[in-house]
């Protein structure tokens, strides 16, 4: 895969994470999450075989699907095409997202120098970006869906980084279990929210 294509992929990856951070529109967020996992799959091919990278893709898509189905069955999904005015919060979060992306871009070369010399700069930019977006998302919102998306984004960033450092089947299996459990917990929280709201 050419460097340009990989750069574009990293940009899409960060963009989809930024959408999740900025925009509060559930269908769009689930779609962005799915897109995020597709980009991770393509980026991770740099350090993993297609088979192993595929596991991450399948898990990611399953996670997105689980969340989507939960939202749908709870009657919470609204049209993606629904237009809403841009709020001041969204503008603020967009600025933060830009800032975080810039930090990732600038910090990656230093991180590559030490302590991650074996990881590529692009991979480091992408993973650091995801980690920062995830952290910010977790720090600023308590709504279950967004919190879970934040956690998943954070973990994706870490997995991307760790994939370039070490490989262990047991660890992969455990991380897969963590991702699936997280989606399960997210669904559980959403359902509980709906149930207690309707009481």
């Amino acid at each position: 895969m050419s460097e340009t294509l990989r750069t574009v992929l990293a940009a899409i990856l960060l963009l989809s994470a930024a959408i999740n951070l900025v925009r509060r529109q559930w269908t769009l967020n689930i779609f962005a999450l799915g897109l995020q996992y597709v980009c991770i799959f393509l980026l991770i091919l740099e350090v993993r075989s297609a088979f192993l990278a595929g596991i991450k893709l399948i898990v990611g898509l399953m996670v997105s699907l689980m969340l989507y189905l939960t939202l749908k069955s709870s009657g919470l999904i609204e049209s993606t095409l629904l237009r809403r005015h841009v709020t001041s919060g969204e503008i603020f979060r967009s600025t933060i997202a830009l800032l975080l992306a810039l930090i990732s871009f600038l910090a990656a070369p230093a991180l590559q120098q030490s302590p991650f010399p074996q990881s590529s700069q692009l991979l480091l930019t992408a993973s650091l970006g995801l980690i920062l977006f995830g952290l910010f998302q977790m720090g600023t919102i308590t709504e279950p869906l967004y919190l879970v998306i934040g956690l998943l984004t954070f973990l994706s960033g870490f997995e991307l980084l760790y994939a370039s450092l070490e490989f262990s089947r047991l660890l992969e299996a455990l991380l897969t279990a963590v991702n699936l459990s997280l989606a399960l917990i997210g669904s559980f929280f959403i359902v509980k929210d709906v149930e207690s709201g309707s009481e």
Partner: peptide, 17 residues
């Protein structure tokens, strides 16, 4: 994983998380 499983217990019945 334990933390994730524990959250099922830590959320009281009939209440929001």
């Amino acid at each position: 994983l334990i933390v994730l499983i524990s959250t099922l217990l830590l959320t009281p019945r009939g209440k929001q998380a």
